[in-house]
Amino acid sequence: MSFATNKRLMEEGDTVLLYVGYDNLVQMQLARGSVHQTRYGALKHDQLIGAPYGKKVECSKGWICPLQPTPELWTLVLPHRTQILYTTDISMIVFQLHLKPGSVVVEAGTGSGSLSHALIRSVMPNGRLHTFEFHEERCAAARKEFEQHGLGDYVTAKHRDVCAAGFELDKEADALFLDLPAPWECITSASHALRQGGRICTFSPCMEQVQRTCEALKDHGFTDLTVLECLSRPFTVQNIKLSYVDFGDQTEITTDKKNTVDKAAPPCKKEREDCEETEVKMEDQQTRSDQGSESWEEQTVSSGGQASKCAVKAREFKTGAPPLVMQGHTGFLTFASLY
């Protein structure tokens, strides 16, 4: 019951996400008597049961923090049985399918259940997700997860090849989502499953899949076709210093501006590896560590032929730096309405 409602305290059986540091989130199911090993020391489940979510827990070598799962956090820790959808696409799917509590939504295939959790959240408590998976083991695993997460009442997980066998739904779905290699094979059954005014979405990595799907959708009377792509570009917050070049001026270097550094928010102390905010002097310096350590902040330079000691200043600022490498493509989302 740790997904369906907001809970203050942890109970036995809850799926708990342990925050162990930046980019280090692990899931566990609380069971009396169990012990979980983290890099900060052993953690007894009994210690957590009855304790509040979101409150730091001291271990022998550091703290961890138990979090109540949300679909977004679950997506980061779930066992991958297939490639999964991530929150950027999931958000768009839920939004453009116009889901709300009470909606009936269909999903094929279930995959690892990453999207399913977000779909269920959107249609709870009076709506329903019908999710189909052609791989029997995966379907069973997903069904078990839904139960464990307290979501069993809002979802029907079936093992079926919908391309061959259809959805067996008659104009009762408000929305339908397809993440299949050949979504176009399912459009006929999809058009039967949707109510008038219903929405469909397909996710396909390749343009050829999108092209065939669009043709099938048009052939079946779908309108308002929209094909889109959405990519998230995450930023890391950094304190940057760019040293001023010495022009050999006799006086202290004057520049247009001395950037004041934020006093209220000094660079975080790097006590832990999870420090997401990093202080970077010269980014390339990091990859040039073989060159000997030069200090770019305080440097003794010769000025105008006379070796005089002066403080070389730097332009300092805080920035949200874009990533060197990011997700370049996940898939195309195709949306359409059936009136």
Binding site: C206, M207, E208, P322, Q327
Partner: peptide, 20 residues
């Protein structure tokens, strides 16, 4: 700046790209 894979039935942008 994005690169594409263009192969029969498997055309898509590369899954990884430069962010800056």
């Amino acid at each position: 700046y994005r690169h594409y894979q263009v192969l029969p039935s498997r055309t898509h942008a590369l899954m990884s790209m430069s962010g800056t």
